[in-house]
Nucleic acid binder design. Structure first.
Lengths: 102, 102
DNA sequence: TAAACAAGTTTATTTTATAAACCAAATAAT
DNA sequence: ATTATTTGGTTTATAAAATAAACTTGTTTA
């Protein structure tokens, strides 16, 4: 009936991050922070979780002398996102149940 | 960019309950328990939260000698659910659903 | 009449989300 | 030149949430 929801994606901030990375394919920490409205601390933690799960790849580079944290979604992450959306739909598009109950 | 998600609905079990109540419009505790696969304790807690928020109405009756907890969605709950779905769409990169609901 | 069952509730524990506090380096101000 | 401020984060502490285990109350059933 209801498919289980990947707890890693069923989180407002992490979902926003994934959604963002799907549309831009590469983004810097400050940009994600601004787009999501998250605090730096919260964002840092949630990015770590996504990276640990292999949903995103984090590349730490430099932009001139400033550190630059680049994030992009991985194929695993993209698949997880799609699965999550499919699971969510089982909660959102429910037609009235006309089957017999026993 | 991303609309905030009502924390009361952004919960797997509570969302399942709401989804269920939208489709059947009235359901007993054991039925909800069976459909969602939740434990009784968890379900009891989450139903309370939904009721406290005014999203569902809980009526405690009897079915013969057995207690019977009846749940149904309220107009407030229905509105909240619809708003939640609209907010979610801002994360899913999906166009709003323009099909007619009957 | 004792044991098992049904229908929940309460409580305790684990997880999670989140922000506050912190750190290091670069730039700006005095 | 030294101090202050800003940038770009990380680490840690706390508040909130989810969840199941344990418990309660009444009802059948053996």
């Amino acid at each position: 009936m209801f498919k289980p929801l990947d707890p890693l994606l069923h989180s407002e901030l992490r979902l926003a991050v994934m959604s963002l990375l799907i549309s831009v394919d590469e983004a810097e920490f400050p940009y994600i922070k601004q787009q999501t409205g998250a605090t730096a601390g919260n964002l840092s933690v949630q990015l770590d979780k996504l990276a640990t799960a292999g949903y995103i790849a984090i590349e730490k580079t430099f932009k001139g002398k400033k550190p630059c944290t680049l994030c992009r979604i991985t194929p695993v992450g993209l698949k997880a996102f799609e699965d999550y959306v499919a699971a969510l739909r089982t909660y959102l598009n429910v037609k009235p149940d006309t089957t017999q109950q026993t």
